[in-house]
Amino acid sequence: MRLTARRIYYYPVDLCDTILRKREDMIPPKGMVFIGSGDFKKQGLHLMDLLIKYARLKPDGQVLDIGCGIGRLAVPLTGYLNKKGSYEGFDIVKKGIDWCNKHISSRFPNFRFLHIDLKNDLYNLQTDNEAKHFVFPYRDKLFDCIVLTSVFTHMIPEDVDNYLGQIARVMKPEGKCLVTFFLLNPAIEKQMQEGKAKFDFCHRHKGYSLMDKKVKEANIAFDESYLSAMLDKNGLKAEAIHYGGWSGVEPNPLDFQDVIILTVK
């Protein structure tokens, strides 16, 4: 319903852009974009810059984009990765994957997209397949760079735990993973209590908090200590944490969400 409403809302704009040929070939119609907000192209370039600067992505790197959506990161990477580089992306929303295969993979064969049918309260209720059992369809120690933006903010702990184990398996020993979270610590909780944070995760559970108790995967925040233990269990560590703009604790944030750089222990 949410995706359909977006298509209807943006239909006049998308139709106009098509008739006037105002939209670039690898930029999807606004009505099809189901993740994030703001300028699709600008956000993709920003994310690529973060990967180059903080995850040390090289033009010949092997990239895995978990929750790749409708190609927000893939599009700018087509102009950065060379023929020795490769990109693999998967997502649970089939329409996004179909669009990427038609508009990106058809031009760049080293860019591949997979639809993975997994249940999620926010994006996919048409299956009973659970993320906690999902095995990434890639061999061990394959990727130099793994990225997840606004993915773990919509996944419950047992699903995140499985994904972290899979990330540790498929990432090269010297590889890096850039992942975004909503993190909770005493300073951030103080911001929420004083009404200074943009979000309020008021429904407390052991190790994590929800924004909406009825739609638990709408937005989820993790206690830093809880997440640290989960990382350690799966053979990962946080090389760096950059707090995002949502909480207000960092005056010059890299992004709206908290950005963590993970490495293999």
Rank of each mutant, 00 (worst) to 15 (best):
G85I: 03
S86D: 08
G89E: 03
G89P: 04
I92V: 10
I92Y: 01
I92Q: 04
V93I: 15
V93L: 09
K94D: 05
K94H: 09
I97P: 03
I97N: 00
W99D: 00
W99F: 05
W99E: 12
W99Q: 10
W99N: 04
C100F: 10
C100D: 06
N101F: 01
K102N: 13
I104E: 02
I104M: 10
I104F: 11
S106Y: 04
R107D: 00
R107Q: 13
P109F: 12
P109R: 13
P109T: 11
N110C: 07
F111C: 11
F113E: 14
I116W: 05
L118M: 15
K119Q: 14
D121F: 06
D121I: 08
L122M: 05
L122C: 08
L122F: 14
Y123W: 13
N124H: 14
N124Y: 06
L125P: 01
L125Y: 01
Q126K: 15
Q126I: 12
Q126H: 14
Q126S: 15
T127R: 07
D128V: 10
D128K: 11
N129G: 00
N129A: 11
E130C: 07
E130I: 04
A131L: 08
K132Y: 09
K132M: 08
F134K: 11
F134L: 11
F134R: 09
V135R: 15
F136S: 09
Y138R: 10
R139S: 13
K141L: 11
L142T: 15
L142Y: 13
L142M: 15
D144N: 14
D144K: 10
C145D: 00
I146K: 07
V147G: 02
L148V: 05
L148G: 05
T149L: 15
S150Q: 12
F152W: 11
F152G: 04
T153W: 07
T153Y: 07
M155F: 02
M155T: 07
E158L: 08
E158D: 13
V160N: 01
D161P: 01
D161F: 03
Y163V: 07
Y163T: 13
L164S: 03
L164G: 03
L164I: 04
G165P: 08
I167Y: 05
I167E: 00
A168I: 01
A168N: 10
V170A: 07
K172Y: 10
P173K: 07
C177R: 06
C177K: 08
C177D: 00
C177A: 11
C177F: 04
C177M: 09
L178R: 11
L178D: 04
V179K: 13
V179H: 00
T180V: 08
T180E: 01
F181A: 02
F181E: 02
F182A: 02
L183A: 13
L183F: 09
N185M: 07
N185V: 05
P186R: 05
P186L: 06
P186D: 15
A187L: 09
I188W: 03
I188M: 03
E189K: 15
K190A: 12
M192Y: 01
Q193N: 12
Q193S: 15
E194Q: 13
E194P: 03
E194L: 14
K196Y: 02
K196P: 00
K198Q: 13
K198C: 09
K198G: 03
D200L: 13
D200N: 15
F201N: 10
H203L: 04
H203K: 08
R204I: 08
H205S: 14
Y208Q: 07
Y208D: 08
Y208P: 08
S209D: 01
S209L: 02
K214V: 09
K214A: 06
V215T: 09
E217H: 04
A218H: 12
